[in-house]
Computed example of a mutant assay.
Amino acid sequence: MSNNKVSVVVPCYNQAQYLDEALQSVLNQSFNDWECIIVNDGSTDKTEVISNKWIKKDSRFKYVYQNNSGLSSARNLGIKKAESEYILPLDADDKIGENYLELAYQAFQEYKDLKVVYCEAKKFGDSDEMWKLPEFSLYSLSRKNMIFCSALFRKKDWKAIGGFDVNMIHGWEDWEFWISMLKNGGLVKKIESVQFYYRVKDVSMLKAMGAQKTKETEEYLSVKHADFFVEQLGSFSSLLRETERVKKSYEEKLKSKKFLINAFLKKLLVLQF
C-alpha cells in the first residue's frame, strides 16, 4: 500500500466532455492523501487527451486504458491498480463535494465495523433538486437500491466478493455490488451533508435499459442472490400468497360501488385543479 489512504476510481467511456468537472472535484478535496485512477474504457473521444492534462497537473492522477469491456470491468481494473486501503468509485459525469473524502475516511476511523460510507446527494444538469433516498436497511436494499456508486469501502471487501459483477451489463451493477458486500453483515453510515452530485441527462444507461433488459437483470439478480431475497422478503410461496391477497383485495374494492364513486370523484377533483 502507498501513503495514499483513498483511491478514487473514475471509469470513463466517451464522457470526455464531463471529465474535467469530475477530476476538478477530486482535486478540490480538503483531504489530501488520495490518488485518482482514470480508467479509459475504450473511448473514441478525447478521454486520453484530457486525462494526460490532469496527470501533468498533479502526479496523484493516474491513467490506464483497456478495450471497451463495460462499467463493472473498468471499475474493477481501476480498483485492482489502486494502492490505497479505501476505494471511492466516481463516474466520469458526476462530482463529489470538497469534504467527502475527509468525512468518509474519518467515519471509518471512528467506527471499525463499517463497511460502507455514503452521504446526502443532489442532482444537477437537467435537474436541480435533492436526491431523496430511503434510509438504509437490508430489507429496503432487497426492494431497491439506495446507495449510489460513489460510496467509500475497503479494497479488501471488494476483493472478498469478487469485485463488481461483469455480467451486469445493462445496469444496476451498484445494487448488485452492495447486496454482495452487505448481505452477510457490516454497518453502513450516511454522512448527513451533501457531498455527492449526480448528473441527470436526457440519455443515460438506466433510461436505456428497457423492459426486456430490466427483466433479464431482475432474473439474474434473483438467482444469484436468492438467499438474500428469500431472507428479507420471505419464501417464494409466501410472496405468491401475498400477491394473491393484494390482488383479491383490489378485486373486492373494484366490485364496491362506493369505491368506484370515490375514485371517480378524486379523479374529477384532480382534473379541476
Score class of each variant (00 low, 15 high):
N3I: 11
N4R: 12
K5I: 07
V8G: 01
P11V: 02
C12F: 03
Y13A: 07
N14G: 07
A16P: 00
Y18H: 13
E21V: 03
Q24K: 09
S25G: 00
V26N: 01
F31Y: 13
D33G: 05
W34L: 04
V39N: 01
N40A: 07
G42Q: 09
S43Q: 09
N52S: 07
K53C: 02
I55D: 02
K56N: 12
K56L: 09
R60Q: 09
F61Q: 02
Y63Q: 05
V64T: 12
N67I: 11
N68M: 11
N68Q: 14
S69G: 13
A74D: 00
N76M: 05
L77Y: 03
K80C: 06
K81M: 13
S84V: 04
E85M: 06
Y86F: 12
P89D: 04
L90H: 00
D91A: 04
A92P: 02
D93V: 06
D93A: 09
D94G: 02
Y100C: 05
L101I: 10
Q106T: 14
A107G: 05
F108G: 00
E110Y: 06
Y111H: 13
V116W: 01
C119T: 07
D126P: 00
D128L: 11
D128Y: 14
D128V: 05
M130D: 12
W131D: 10
M146K: 06
F148T: 03
A151G: 05
L152Y: 05
R154V: 07
K156W: 11
D157Y: 05
I161F: 07
V166D: 07
V166L: 06
M168A: 06
M168F: 08
I169F: 10
I169Y: 09
H170A: 15
D174K: 04
W178P: 01
W178E: 00
I179K: 03
S180A: 14
M181S: 01
K183Y: 06
N184Q: 13
G185E: 13
L187G: 08
V188R: 00
S193L: 12
V194I: 15
Q195L: 14
Y198M: 09
V200D: 15
V203D: 11
K207H: 13
G210M: 08
K213I: 12
T214E: 14
E216N: 14
Y220K: 12
Y220P: 00
D227A: 14
V230C: 03
E231K: 15
E231C: 10
F236P: 02
L239A: 10
E242P: 06
T243S: 13
K255T: 10
S256R: 08
K258D: 12
A263T: 14
L265G: 08
L265E: 15
V270C: 11
L271I: 15
L271E: 15
Q272C: 15
F273N: 15
